[in-house]
């Protein structure tokens, strides 16, 4: 990948994290859809990424991945688990959602397949890839 396009990757990651943050708040605060327990754990991993990646971009910190990747990987793990429950690959009975809304209740289904857990999964995968691909180039630049 050419260097110019690679330098866009952290911005792309930041925009994804920002959209995921704003979007999840839109779902809960504007549309009134209550977030389930697993959604909250994913939010915990997602929201700080806006700040961490943002500061990483501003300070041109090549070590950004060491701060950001643990969060995206934690989020990704929870998200994979959530999707497995959501699509019935794991039985719901093992879901740790005793209170509030069930983690498998379908609240949004755009175009018949775009659901909230799927969007979260896509966001965490994209973030992880952006950070992995970017740092290889960034490290070269710094060294």
């Amino acid at each position: 990948m050419p260097v110019i396009r690679r330098s866009v990757l952290p911005y792309l990651a930041w925009v994804i994290a920002l959209l995921a943050t704003v979007g999840s708040l839109f779902f809960s605060e504007v549309m009134g859809l209550p977030p389930c327990m697993l959604c909250w754990y994913q939010r915990i991993a997602m929201y700080p990424l806006v700040i961490i990646i943002g500061i990483g971009i501003i300070t041109r910190d090549g070590r950004m991945k060491y701060y950001a990747l643990p969060l995206t990987l934690i989020g990704l793990t929870i998200s994979i688990y959530h999707n497995l429950l959501y699509y019935g690959i794991f039985p719901e009975s093992i879901a740790p959602c005793a209170q509030g809304i069930s983690c498998t209740s379908r609240q949004i289904e755009w175009l018949g397949f775009i659901t909230i857990p799927l969007m979260a999964l896509a966001a965490f995968i994209a973030l992880t890839l952006c950070l992995l691909l970017h740092t290889t180039e960034k490290e070269r630049e710094i060294v």
């Binding site: 911005y11 930041w14 925009v15 920002l18 959209l19 704003v22 708040l25 839109f26 605060e29 504007v30 549309m31 943002g54 971009i57 501003i58 300070t59 041109r60």
Partner: peptide, 28 residues
């Protein structure tokens, strides 16, 4: 360093404003 702040501020402002407009439109 300045350039990065400008880009992030610009994108951030666009996203936040779009969300506020979207929220108001959705509620209406």
């Amino acid at each position: 360093m300045k350039k990065q702040i400008k880009i992030l501020t610009l994108i951030g402002a666009v996203v936040v404003i779009a969300t506020i407009i979207g929220a108001s439109y959705y509620r209406k």
